[in-house]
Design a protein around this nucleic acid. Sequence first.
DNA 1: TTCACGCTTTGATGCAGATCAACCCTGATG
DNA 2: CATCAGGGTTGATCTGCATCAAAGCGTGAA
Lengths: 250, 250
Amino acid sequence: MTRTSPKLQPYSQECSECPIRHRAVCARCESDELDLLEQIKYYRSFEAGQTVVWSGDRMDFVASVVTGIATLSQTMEDGRRQMVGLLLPSDFVGRPGRDTSAYDVTAATDLVMCCFRKKPFEDVMLRTPHIGQRLLEMTLDELDAAREWMLLLGRKTAREKIASLICIIARRDASLQLQASGGELRFDLPLTREAMSEYLGLTLETVSRQISALRKEGLILTQGKRQIIIPDFDLLLEETGDDSDGGFLV
Amino acid sequence: MTRTSPKLQPYSQECSECPIRHRAVCARCESDELDLLEQIKYYRSFEAGQTVVWSGDRMDFVASVVTGIATLSQTMEDGRRQMVGLLLPSDFVGRPGRDTSAYDVTAATDLVMCCFRKKPFEDVMLRTPHIGQRLLEMTLDELDAAREWMLLLGRKTAREKIASLICIIARRDASLQLQASGGELRFDLPLTREAMSEYLGLTLETVSRQISALRKEGLILTQGKRQIIIPDFDLLLEETGDDSDGGFLV
DNA sequence: TTCACGCTTTGATGCAGATCAACCCTGATG
DNA sequence: CATCAGGGTTGATCTGCATCAAAGCGTGAA
């Protein structure tokens, strides 16, 4: 399923100049830094379900998601799996200063990533401090998201977990698309029931049951297996167990 | 276990001069930077149980733990609580670029922190890039720890959670004290049963029961309520559910 | 058209951990 | 020395989610 060669992606519309995060950074970029990054960047694409790297394998690049969704997961010896990262377009993977992956990185949907070989990337980082600063900000954001996620895993009920996940995806989806809010929200769930269960620390049967329950109560509507419509976002938010006064948007 | 297990890596000695993280940084410090940091640092101490800041409150400093243990927790409206950070000596709290705390910060034991007012600290950061780099490394470490924690919360059984927590504390404790391992490990649990339950996403009754179970099976010995002796660390490790081949050092 | 395969839904049952409720230490205090 | 309070333990019961099992889609291949 090689539809478009990654080389031909109209990536420039995002922001061809700034590879770290495709938005918001470029104001600080200077042209010689950009040249350096341009020279070392390359694209890779994956089909839904493919593994990008296995935990423990050598990973000699860092990357950011261009399109699609990637996940980070940990697996226990007996096969229990927990997702620990969900990467949407513009998110970053890889750790400067470490050369093996600590997690399984998987394409949840068809996926295009913009990669930089680690060594040259680190060289550029040394020369251009704002890249490090940006990376620090992003890492702090991820840490906050991870902590919110810990609350979900440790203390929320299955119903609250499902409502939370739907809200999280709706929000990120909406923010990516600058969607006009006001009425209903409509979007595709980009995850299988199984992937959702790995995100939430549940079984896929429980995920399915809770989605059915929310549908029966009218809190969400569904079209097909994947499309979700949220008639009243605030109503759904009340089911998440989160503070009603605006919590985090991740 | 004739020699020090790789799982019990010692921290390098503390370094009173370097406030960011007491180990490992100072090689890169230069005296004028240190002077700057010296000038803006101050100490605060707290008794066990005291709250350092509440979630949502103004927090105009960043800090690192000097002695004792601090925790970060999130609370839901109905009172359910989840710990999301456990700060041992040399760990860092606070987020440059944000002026309210996202979490309740609490002294789990008597606590001394070395604080820096946020604004001057940020100024120093701008001037001395290696502080930002160090902070990035530390944040990445914390993110890895958070992800390990997510696996624990989402997928481990109560028994595995307890075994994991005891191992985590034993390791960090051992590394702080350069403890000669080889035989048994002996240390104080610095957390109440309730704090442990908040860490693990359990109730305190379950924590108590599981500790009793491990004791009855001889995997741990206890003296009083708090002191723990681990006769065979590897045996306890097998109860954590983690991969046997060396996992993370946090 | 039929088949097969991957994903999803739904039902029946079991169990780990929550909940509710006593009771037990141990050290501080008058 | 008696009392008290703040942990900590242990027991009985309940329940939310896991587990086991089967059947229902929807899509693409034959």
